[in-house]
């Protein structure tokens, strides 16, 4: 019997219903009496519309759906930086110009900050399960792959520069001097030739602050190990026949395999198959459409079955109301109750 997982990750290209499906999964857990946190890093803010959230991004909000309660968090990288800063009052990450700019919603630090956020939420020990709706595309999986490379940033040689620095003597001049003594000197020297003089100062200060927070960053990167661990994490690769070409699914499959978590499952969302086979078109054009749709779904289905141990199929939902669609999807998870805890 499978243990209840700590993390469930939903990834896939945008528009396949990833956020809706992740939400339905979280609601399914909630309806089974579990304490759930749903996090979305989808910059399109679909979750906000779907669950009519009122809090600004970056704050956990408790919502109720029918009789169940659920915690939700829209990722906001700026808030994550602020939270990281608060954990230690000397570490003013949110006061450095470079860090502030990069932590904007489209600044490009979303992936690493979402791992750190995930770790911080996990450490609260409040939740039975955390459901994560990732940003569209393969970026999140790419990011998990590159987590090791980021560790290099914190490699011993560089970190050594900082070990002798203590809080009372750490000012920017000493810091720059230490940097210089550590052979990063040349890079900074060249930087100074091609950028403004303030840049080198801001840059050194940013590095200083980040290295001071290295434990938080390294902790965050460590969560990558948990996400790769089948005992702790289910990963759902969400596809839909109307969106994705089998070749693109293939690519996600390859990336997924590198994660080496056997609990990497496929979800075929918005399936029309059962409807299509019962259709007897009367015009040639309708027949052509029927055949084209059946082939499209069939190709994807075959591809998924060849590459994943399990494929979960969810029917297309076309109710006018979002809540109604969510309920249908939530209830559909119980069909797979014995495969997934």
């Amino acid at each position: 019997m499978n243990q209840l997982k700590k993390f469930e990750i939903f990834c896939g290209t945008g528009g396949v219903g990833k956020t809706t499906l992740a939400t339905s999964r979280a609601l399914y857990h909630a309806s089974n009496g579990r304490k759930v946190l749903l996090i979305t890093i989808d910059p399109a803010k679909r979750l906000k519309d779907l669950l009519k959230l009122e809090s600004p991004a970056g704050q956990v909000e408790e919502i109720s759906f029918e009789t169940h309660r659920l915690d939700c968090l829209l990722m906001n990288p700026e808030m994550t930086i602020t939270r990281m800063s608060k954990k230690d009052s000397d570490r003013k990450l949110d006061e450095n110009k470079i860090i502030k700019i990069l932590a904007r919603p489209f600044g490009g630090m979303n992936e690493i900050l979402s791992l750190i956020e995930l770790q911080m939420q996990f450490d609260k020990n409040l939740y039975d399960v955390i459901v994560l709706d990732t940003a569209p595309g393969s970026h999140f999986l790419d990011f998990l792959e590159s987590a090791k490379k980021i560790n290099l940033f914190f490699d011993d040689q560089i970190i050594e520069v900082f070990t002798n620095l203590n809080k009372s003597t750490a000012n920017k001049f000493q810091f720059v001097n230490r940097l210089i003594s550590a052979g990063i000197k040349k890079i900074l020297f060249y930087l100074e030739q091609v950028t403004g003089k303030d840049f080198v100062h801001d840059f050194s200060q940013a590095l200083y602050l980040i290295y001071q927070s290295k434990d938080l960053f390294l902790e965050g990167l460590k969560i990558e190990q948990k996400l790769k661990n089948e005992a702790l994490t289910n990963i759902f690769f969400v596809t839909s026949p109307e969106q994705i070409k089998p070749e693109e699914a293939q690519d996600m499959i390859q990336r997924g395999k590198k994660l080496s978590n056997p609990h990497y499952f496929a979800v075929m969302n918005k399936s029309l198959h059962s409807e299509l086979i019962s259709w007897e078109p009367t015009t040639a054009e309708a027949l052509a459409l029927k055949n084209s749709l059946i082939k499209r779904e069939g190709d994807l289905n075959q591809n998924l079955h060849q590459n994943f141990t399990k494929v979960f199929t969810f029917p297309e939902t076309v109710s006018e109301s979002l809540d109604e669609n969510l309920k249908q999807l939530r209830n559909h998870w119980s069909v797979y109750g014995s495969d997934l805890n």
Partner: peptide, 19 residues
Amino acid sequence: LTLLESAENFKNIFGEGIV
């Protein structure tokens, strides 16, 4: 959008100079 913002963001980060 990250791509588009990168030019704007790094412009602000670098401040002056050739870059």
